Amino acid sequence: FILEALKTTPLNKLNKPLYVLATADEETSMAGARFFAEQQMIKPSMAIIGEPTELVPIYKHKGHIAQSLHIQGKAGHSSDPDKGVNAIEIMYQAIGQLMDLQSKLKTQFHDEAFSVPHVTMNLGHIHGGDAENRICGHCKLNFDMRAVPELSDEQALAMIDEALAPVSAKYPSRLSLDLMYPTAPAFACRDEQNILALAEQLTGKKYQSANYATEAPFINQLGCDTIVLGPGSIDQAHQPDEYISLDYVEPTVHILQQMIKKVCF
C-alpha cells in the first residue's frame, strides 16, 4: 500500500524525511521493532503502524505477556501415591492462585477506553502425565495476560510471581516460570504532534482502542506520535482464509498520500 501511495508522490520535494520500516518477527518476539527502538537511528515526528483496523485510527492498545509454568513432580506407579509427587495436583493449586489473580486484576486495573475494559488472563494450553496408571511427573501450562497501559510489564510479572509464591514455598524447587517470548508492552499515543486529529480528519473516523498488541509501543520509543492504522479487519486475522477486501485499496492509498502531504511537505 505504501509503495503504491509513493508512485505519484514527488519525493524530491519532501520537506521532512519519509521512512518505510520493514520489521521482522512481528507475530512473536517483535525483534525488528525492538531493534529500531534500541538503535534510535531515526527520529520521526509521526508514525503509522500498518495493521487491519478497518481504517479506524487506533491510539491505545493492550500489552501481551505469555509464560510457561512448569511443575516438576516425581513419577511412579499409581498404586502407591506416597512414593511419587503428582505434578497435576500441584498444578491444580497453582491454577487456583492464578484464577484468584485473574479476579484481582479485573477489579484493580480498569480502562473504559477498551471494549474489554479490564486486564485479561487466559489459560491457553496444558499438558501433563503420560498414562492413567502413572503418577504425573511433569505438567506444563501456557498462559497469557493482556494488560491495560496502567499496568506495566514489570508490575504484571511481579504480581504473577507473588500469586504463585505460596505454592512455590509449599513445593520447593518444583515450580519454574519462563517467558515464552519477550513481553510486548501496552501502548498509548503521545499525541504531541496532533496526529489523532489529523488521522480523524483524513479517515473520517473517531480514533479507538484495541485489545490486541502491535509494534506501536516500540516505535513510540523513537519519540514520535504513533498510531495503528490499516486496511482489513482483525476478524479475518489469523484465520485459514485470511484476506483483505479489494475495496480497501483505493481509500488506503489515498489516506497514506494525504498523510504524507500533510506531514512531509
Rank of each mutant, 00 (worst) to 15 (best):
D100P: 01
H125E: 09
Q155M: 06
K60G: 02
I65H: 13
A87V: 07
K83R: 13
I58L: 05
I126M: 15
H110C: 08
F143V: 06
L105T: 00
D153P: 01
L123I: 13
I65V: 15
D130Y: 09
V56G: 07
T53N: 09
I95W: 07
K62E: 02
Q97S: 09
S115V: 07
E89Q: 13
E154W: 00
H64Y: 14
G124W: 11
H127C: 07
D111R: 08
D144I: 10
I65R: 14
A94T: 03
L151I: 03
E154C: 00
A147F: 08
N142D: 15
M99P: 00
A75I: 05
S152N: 06
I90T: 06
Q72G: 12
H127V: 11
K60C: 06
H138I: 02
G76P: 03
I95A: 10
E54A: 12
N133K: 10
V119G: 01
R134T: 09
G96R: 02
I88L: 09
S103E: 11
S115C: 05
C139S: 13
I88E: 04
H70D: 15
V119L: 05
M159L: 10
A66G: 15
L105P: 01
M121L: 15
S79W: 11
K106W: 02
D111L: 06
D144W: 09
E51C: 05
H61T: 04
I71Y: 06
F114Y: 06
E150M: 09
N133P: 11
A87S: 10
I95K: 13
Q155C: 02
Q93S: 09
H118Y: 10
A131M: 11
K104P: 01
P117T: 02
G137C: 03
I126K: 09
H64Q: 15
H77F: 04
H70F: 15
A66Q: 15
